[in-house]
Write a protein that binds this DNA or RNA. Structure first.
Lengths: 328, 328
DNA sequence: TTGTATGCGTTATCAG
DNA sequence: CTGATAACGCATACAA
């Protein structure tokens, strides 16, 4: 309203009595004569000049915007991820353009390709579609999905986490284990949670079973599963590893409704490290993903010059945390 | 890598054998000769052309990006807000550039002014700084903060919600009430939660007290408050309204640790409608904010042409939801 | 060193 | 209704 027209480099140049190019150099940190430097800086200050990023992007074919694609922000894990990514990008003078797919393959694909019209400097994404096509000429980092050689992937140590969950249940006195997951909670890299679990059980010579719940009606499928494994008021397993905290939480509730006590009758471990209210206590005993480190690494990888893309699969270590659904 | 250079309108024009301006018209839906229309569309399809939004923004001085400023995404309310805003913007062919301030006044201000270099088409923000300066020439919508005439503000009916909380506690048999909040949970519009609560108590002739907890160490301040109001194993109030679900959750935990039972000994109502794991059960009985509607309205207001900015304070209705910390 | 001129991909103006 | 042309704000190769 007040200032009807934008301040441009040309205005600064006029105000400082120098040429346009000189202003550009000062703005971009290119060395320039000492007195010119001062005059330009003063003019910038006086006029309140701010660089127009669109014009810069158009001209230099590079912007300070990174595109981030996630399923949603309801899942506390994704919310934390978005939070950390945003801060880390800010710290490195970049901005986050966020897209939410709700798991839709079509949306994943169209957002993925939107970079072609946006001139973003990179993409960080967590997609479900196993064969999403990526724009060839832009740095891309996947989370929990390994699209093949040359493309970076950041994930937690899912295999190790699966092992760790089994070990912790055994340490806590469990003798028969079970693993629960939904189809969507076990795509690509995260599928290794089961593999690690299975391996640890096998190594220990412990009986176990794995069950995949229908994504459509997980709650009723969950209840059905539990009833099928219950006889005379007891379950035929005493330790349960769930592929996500979300599932673990549902399982705990269903068990309580069936009159079973957690952790007395059955102990549960989830995966993610989701907290109840964002920054308070865990909602279950769990394998904690190092979200902050993962975010940092994603940003580092996506911003680094494409030349040095050495290792493409990055697995970050997880740890176990007590959250009330195990003995300790 | 594969395609070394971008496809531009010029390429399409050459391919279709028409002039540049004609392509632009087709792309922007401006009427054009039937046969030209077809030829251009075919060329676009054949070449896989996509409009360059930066160039468009530079030229037309308008982009499809809306800047959203929030404190963080750990708070489930903010996460839901960001989620809904993102979807709503998408639905209207816009993108969300997200900034997180963690409540820092400086960051709020600098992100607020960043729009000046980004050519965004609007700002939706939830800021704490009472006198943040807004860029004059860009549509801005505040959440939970009313910066004065002419600037749009979207909020839940905080006053009505405060009343409702008191009423519900009374309905559930409480006879002495208390209100708890932190400084940051009670800024500007949200302060009316207390006003409504106070008014309802006064009208009903019910004794009550209000207490402000130190933001720095809310947990210890909380405990101290509770102990001060406890004698012989009983509290001197039996109904507690907390300014946020977050606070309500903390209060419940602290009370449990002190050996008090919720809701038997004291009933608690929070504010927000935060869910435990994003889409599961409420973490306490609460006054639910209509987040989705608020997001929709924010987007509508920020995108509408600045001419018709009639009412500037929009209060959306809240409702009460049982979440286990009251009798019903 | 500093200044000048060109073009990034679009949109908008105006003359055919 | 169509086609050439001039900006938009900035970066950069090139000339001074």
């Amino acid at each position: 309203m007040a200032d009807s027209k934008r301040i441009t480099m040309k205005d600064v140049a006029r105000e400082a009595g120098v040429a346009l190019g000189t202003v550009s150099k000062v703005v971009n940190g290119v060395p320039v004569g000492k007195s010119y430097q001062r005059r330009v800086e003063e003019a910038i200050e006086r006029l309140g000049y701010r660089v127009n990023r669109q014009a810069r992007a158009l001209r230099s074919n590079k912007s300070s915007i990174v595109e981030v694609i996630l399923p949603d922000l309801h899942n506390p894990l994704f919310a934390r991820l978005a939070d950390c990514l945003c801060r880390e990008l800010s710290r490195r003078s970049h901005q986050m353009l966020l897209f939410l797919t709700k798991g839709s393959f079509d949306l994943e694909q169209s957002y993925m390709l939107m970079s072609e019209q946006q001139m973003v400097s990179g993409i960080i994404c967590l997609t479900l579609n196993p064969k999403v096509r990526i724009p060839g000429d832009i740095p891309t980092v996947f989370i929990d999905r390994n699209p093949g050689p040359g493309i970076a992937c950041v994930t937690s140590d899912n295999y190790g986490g699966g092992c760790l969950a089994a070990q912790k249940l055994l340490e806590n006195g469990c003798t028969r284990l079970a693993f629960l997951h939904t189809a969507s909670s076990l795509h690509d890299e995260t599928g290794k949670r089961r593999d690690g679990f299975v391996c640890a059980c096998t190594d220990a010579g412990i009986p176990f079973r794995c069950e995949c719940l229908d994504d459509g009606a997980p709650d009723s499928a969950l209840e059905e599963f539990l009833r099928a494994h219950q006889s005379e008021g007891r379950l035929d397993f005493d330790g349960l590893f769930c592929a996500t905290d979300h599932l673990a939480h549902s399982a705990r509730r269903a068990l309580n409704q069936m009159g079973m006590r957690v952790p007395e009758d059955v102990q549960i471990i989830g995966y993610d490290g989701a907290q109840r209210l964002g920054d308070q206590d865990l909602c279950c005993s769990t394998i904690v993903q190092p979200v902050e480190e993962m975010a940092r690494l994603c940003v580092e990888l996506v911003l680094q010059t494409s030349s040095e893309r050495i290792p493409c699969l990055h697995q970050l270590p997880v740890c176990y945390a007590y959250g009330g659904t195990t003995n300790r």
